[in-house]
Design a protein around this nucleic acid. Sequence first.
DNA 1: TATTAGCACTCTCGATGCGAGAGTGCTAAT
DNA 2: ATTAGCACTCTCGCATCGAGAGTGCTAATA
Lengths: 344, 344
Amino acid sequence: MLNERSQKVLCAIVQTYINNPEPVGSSFITKRYSFNLSPATVRNIMADLEEQGFLSQPHTSAGRIPTDMGYRLFVNSLHSEIEYQPDNRSSLYKMVNELESIKDDINTLLEETTKRLSVFSHYLSVAVSPSTRISTFNRIEFLRHRGSQVVAVLLTDEGLIKNKVLDVGSDLSQRHLNRISEYLNSEFHGYSLIEIRAKIIREMAKEKDLCDTLISRAIRICKEALFFPYDDLFIAGFAEVLGLPDFSDVEKIKEISKAIEDKHHMLQILEKISDTDGVKVIIGAENSIMQMKGFSLVASSYKEGDRPIGCVGMIGPTRMDYSRAIAVVNTTARFLTRVLTDRK
Amino acid sequence: MLNERSQKVLCAIVQTYINNPEPVGSSFITKRYSFNLSPATVRNIMADLEEQGFLSQPHTSAGRIPTDMGYRLFVNSLHSEIEYQPDNRSSLYKMVNELESIKDDINTLLEETTKRLSVFSHYLSVAVSPSTRISTFNRIEFLRHRGSQVVAVLLTDEGLIKNKVLDVGSDLSQRHLNRISEYLNSEFHGYSLIEIRAKIIREMAKEKDLCDTLISRAIRICKEALFFPYDDLFIAGFAEVLGLPDFSDVEKIKEISKAIEDKHHMLQILEKISDTDGVKVIIGAENSIMQMKGFSLVASSYKEGDRPIGCVGMIGPTRMDYSRAIAVVNTTARFLTRVLTDRK
DNA sequence: TATTAGCACTCTCGATGCGAGAGTGCTAAT
DNA sequence: ATTAGCACTCTCGCATCGAGAGTGCTAATA
């Protein structure tokens, strides 16, 4: 579809534009890269590339800038080239080592990771905690709280700790609650939360008229206590991206701040990535789910053992340094995987 | 220090500038307000006000804009006039009523409050959860977690629920932990966390060589479990303020985003307000603690009964609509107070 | 046939100039 | 003490202009 020479020129243009966000001219390419081509030839190639949709021109008589398609081709070629080559910059390793000390609480770990990642990369960085849906039930405890309220504390094998305030009548004493939690803990230990929800639904249908009140109440309480509509989302580095030349325009800033304020949407995208393996790159409006026109996401799942459980990544302008971003995200995800896997 | 007429003119200028962020000229004032003064007179007054530091001029031959001092005078006069007149706009009441339904969890309540408040006011809105320092210990429970870890769950009388992951050796069984929590709960019930910390410090000094291991360990564990350096801070509405004309400049946006990324700083300011009564207004760099040059904070503590426990407020450009902001913040704080007081 | 040199053309960008408009400060009259 | 009048200042929008960068096309070249 594209001969090798054209592709090389395209990549050169993308790389040049990434280094410096100004339209790239033909002569720059011939000077900077030794393709042994004259500017005129490069111009012809560029015209072709534009026709095929890989480049665009802000106006006649300006150089070319990559389209999303252009970036995509660039990223794909990159991928096969340097795939998963960890970034050996000492500062990244330093950062990662600093994080080693906080392996106790997974949310603290993720929060600190995103913070440092954004400072390090100058991009927005994001992470989602292990998905509650697929998490493995370890145990649940109920603590009587003020009035008719009860605090349910859920622990999962992945290390998640989730609180939920429930309103059960005031007739259930702490003793009753302990009986309920004992029952649930023995019944559900080791199942994933999504399985448990299914079980509960079945159970509720079955026991509709049966009335072992304590158990049926336990089931009902549990259904509520295990329902967490959203996983935790960590975002850091807004101040960082404001420094990029791509955000010298107020409109652009509004767009990105809208994109990250819509946490629900963000989570959807990241959770999809949480389920898969390796680094994913989503460029601009590629993924029609997101109204992230103008931004790209480089993200990877992190795992516990062999099982992907969450996701960490970076968001930047489409003009972001993909090669570095991919390497950094990959390194970070591997680091998280190692910490989460080793901690047992 | 300032005669009544000058003050009226100043307030008129401030009000005009708040309505529309353009330097205010003398003739506008004479036309819009019926002071029965000629533009020339107003010009003289304006020159005086400028000399005294209440107004400034972007350039000769432009109108005047208020300085921080000018806003301050304006706000003070406002204060004595409409102090604590609740805002009767039906939409605010509607908003507040929607919030009534989530009185279960205080953090959820605060989060939703800030969200709605920002949408309603078009300013950034902030809130801090009840200060852990002054909160009243209700009980603590320890749950064995993975490996040598324990999850401490702290409940306070104010309704706070705090988790902390601790690394105690792996030799303490759940049974031991229960003994410890029973001891702590009977010992500390009803004390404020800050008192408890003091008690613990004394206890630790005393028992240095004594070695009732379980109790001394309990004390040590408790010291760690009760230490929460930061209260929760809720901020919402960044996208809202971007719409204001005051933030059409990228530099301004950077400034405000820096101000809110520094949560530590923000908390310091808000915690001070949490301790006092009524609505406070901090204009620009007035409070030298904050590098919030260019922004103002309108905030009020909310209470449980008669005791201020936390704080809610709004941040906007110095050119914000103080009158409305004060009313809205006041209404919101009173609403929170009512909900938190009634819920028992 | 693919490449290239040459050249006219187009478009942006910064500098410059200019006039309208808004608003001031000062002075002299009320 | 207030005000009318007026000269003055400054911004802002608009148009003009030339330099510079980069293109597309054509004709020559290997």
